[in-house]
């Protein structure tokens, strides 16, 4: 979540004090991304240094009013029109299952089942929250409800993927494929691992036994 861009987008509506920005941000995002005062002011300092906002300097009460600059407005427009990339490095669950499926002696079905229970419980909890939240009367309620939806869809996708994994593993086992790949007694001395994601075409040699089954 880009706090910098979010604060700038709020400032695009008109000049604000620092604490006011924190309030506006949290109100509109349902408190899903907690902001502390230190973060707000260090962000504002950086925005000021980059020429995207201007500070009025401290008034009698020690408060500074921040105003967006034309360069800042341009930044907001470019943020809104830039897609948020999918973060491929941070799928802890996918990494865990990828490991568990090839390491010998792991009850992968149990790992999947445990995960699905947790995911379904999360879905039930989110659904209850959603049912209890007021039906949209303004943008704030709708924003909160859409945030809940985002979590719901994300966890649903997780469950669907778990089902998919389960079916593929069951199929492989039914075809008598041995999924387990023991530790390599003769590991490469140095350098990068021999198996990288499918994109690398340079790893066609030295396929460890069974590694293709993991795909």
């Amino acid at each position: 979540m880009s706090i910098r861009d979010s604060l700038l987008a709020i400032l695009d509506q008109g000049p604000c004090y620092g604490y006011q920005l924190g309030y506006e941000f949290e109100m509109r995002t349902g408190g899903s991304v907690p902001l502390n005062t230190g973060q707000i002011y260090s962000t504002l300092e950086r925005l000021d240094a980059a020429g995207l906002i201007q500070s009025s300097g401290a008034d009698d009460e020690g408060r500074a009013l921040y105003t967006i600059t034309p360069a800042g407005r341009e930044d907001v427009q470019s943020w809104l029109s830039t897609p948020v990339p999918h973060d491929m490095r941070r799928n802890e669950l996918a990494t865990k299952l990828a490991l568990a499926v090839s390491l010998p002696g792991i009850d992968i079905a149990h790992v999947i089942q445990t995960q699905r229970h947790a995911a379904m419980n999360t879905l039930q909890e989110l659904t209850r929250l959603k049912r209890n939240s007021s039906s949209s009367v303004d943008g704030l309620d709708l924003g909160w409800s859409l945030l809940l939806d985002a979590h719901l869809f994300e966890v649903e996708a997780e469950v669907r993927w778990l089902d998919h994994c389960e079916t593929r593993i069951a199929r492989a086992i039914a075809e008598n494929v041995d999924l387990s790949v023991p530790l390599n007694p003769d590991p490469p001395k140095r350098g990068r691992p021999t198996r990288a994601p499918a994109s690398s075409a340079s790893h066609t040699n030295a396929t460890p036994k069974g590694a293709d089954n993991v795909r």
Partner: peptide
């Protein structure tokens, strides 16, 4: 799964047998 989450309990069937069940957890 998103629709199943409206339920109090979720029962999983496989090959005609109940293989698992998820109950609503506490808040």
């Amino acid at each position: 799964a998103r629709h199943a989450a409206w339920a109090d309990r979720i029962i999983y069937l496989r090959d005609g047998r109940i293989t698992d069940e998820t109950r609503a957890n506490t808040l």
